[in-house]
Simulated assay, not measured.
Amino acid sequence: MGVLEGKVAVVTGASRGIGAAIAERLAAEGARVVAAARTVDASQSRLEGTIGDTVARIEAAGGTAFAQPADLSREQDRQALVEAAAERYGTVDILVNNAAVTYFTPVSDFTDRRYHLMFEVQVNAPFHLSRLVIPGMRERGAGWILNISSIAARHPAFPPGPYAGFGGTVYGMCKAALERFTTGLAAELYADGIAVNALSPNQVVPTPGTLFHRLTTEDAPGTEPASVMADAALALCHRPAAELTGRIAYSQDLLAELRGS
């Protein structure tokens, strides 16, 4: 019996990278996982991985999951995702908002379409999905919402470093907004027993996305395996809200803290 036995978990952006690792980790602890993303067929993306691949790995390991195609920029797809999860498995206990569409472009060159798309997927979608799952969590008196953030949410140092012109301003804006949403929602839902946390890696994680954007390489020193984020996500998705909520957590720091407690 895993610590998530009987729980229903929705993980967005679960076709690859951190999202796939979290989906597999939650399933290994007994959760019935709904893996959501746009990529159903390998031909749909330049990046490796589909939600079918993630589900296949979960099932091969003895877990339970199904793939739900969802474009998180579309309100109707977000609604359909929660409805499909409830129809297949029941009330959602755990929501992991991991999906992202990211462009690294300086502000002076950023298009309106890309700007609005990034905020729709990385800020509005977590807001909307959280609203959709809160009623069921409140009814049960427990629940876990985890928003995947990034060290990019931090303010830059001055004088700025060599990456200041790389084009991460809008990405950082999205993650900063997500973190403020996290702490505000955690305060609102504390009395309901619903934990809301944000989680970032301490170091860049080599994933198809970070490799594509040339943020790191497969063999670069000082990187963090996706499994570390998955372990930290698990830690934030089963402890009572009275014990662990409203945190802007960093994976390695959190795991070290919990080991020492």
Rank of each mutant, 00 (worst) to 15 (best):
R154D: 10
R259I: 08
S108F: 04
V33C: 07
D41H: 15
G63Y: 08
R140M: 08
F158R: 13
V101R: 08
G168A: 15
N124I: 12
R88Y: 10
H128G: 02
T111D: 15
A20W: 06
G52M: 10
A142M: 02
G52N: 14
F110I: 11
V10K: 03
G49F: 10
Q68N: 04
T207F: 01
T183E: 14
R113V: 12
A60P: 00
D109Y: 07
G2K: 06
F127Y: 15
T102S: 12
N197H: 09
T102Y: 04
R180A: 11
T102G: 00
P208T: 05
N202W: 05
F66H: 04
G167I: 02
Y250K: 08
Q44I: 02
F110V: 11
L211Q: 11
V3E: 07
A42P: 06
G2P: 09
G141A: 10
R46K: 14
V96S: 01
S43Y: 05
R57E: 06
L95A: 06
A100I: 10
G165A: 14
A84E: 06
P160F: 05
E59Y: 04
R239S: 05
Y115F: 15
A176N: 04
A60S: 14
L254Q: 02
R57M: 07
D219P: 08
P159G: 13
I18T: 05
L132W: 09
E139N: 04
I145Q: 07
V196K: 05
T217P: 03
A37P: 03
R154N: 13
E224N: 04
I194E: 01
G30F: 13
Y103Q: 09
R247W: 06
A80H: 01
A187N: 09
I94Y: 04
V228R: 11
V10N: 00
V10P: 00
R114K: 15
P106G: 04
V205N: 00
S227F: 03
D192E: 14
F104L: 15
A230P: 11
L258A: 05
E5T: 13
I151M: 14
D192P: 02
I58Y: 01
M229P: 00
Q122Y: 00
I151F: 02
Y250F: 12
P156K: 08
P208M: 10
L215A: 11
S261C: 06
E120C: 10
V101G: 12
V101S: 12
A28E: 14
N98A: 09
A60T: 09
F104S: 07
L244Q: 11
E224H: 03
D93E: 05
R131L: 12
A164M: 05
V228D: 01
E257D: 13
T91C: 07
A86M: 12
T207S: 09
G49I: 11
G141Y: 13
A226P: 01
Q68C: 12
Q76K: 11
R16E: 00
E257M: 05
G19Q: 03
R131K: 15
P206C: 10
D192Q: 10
F212L: 08
Y163P: 00
T223P: 07
A220N: 05
P160A: 12
A23G: 07
R57V: 12
M137Y: 11
T217N: 07
R131S: 14
A42H: 07
V8M: 06
M229I: 07
G19Y: 01
E120T: 13
F119I: 10
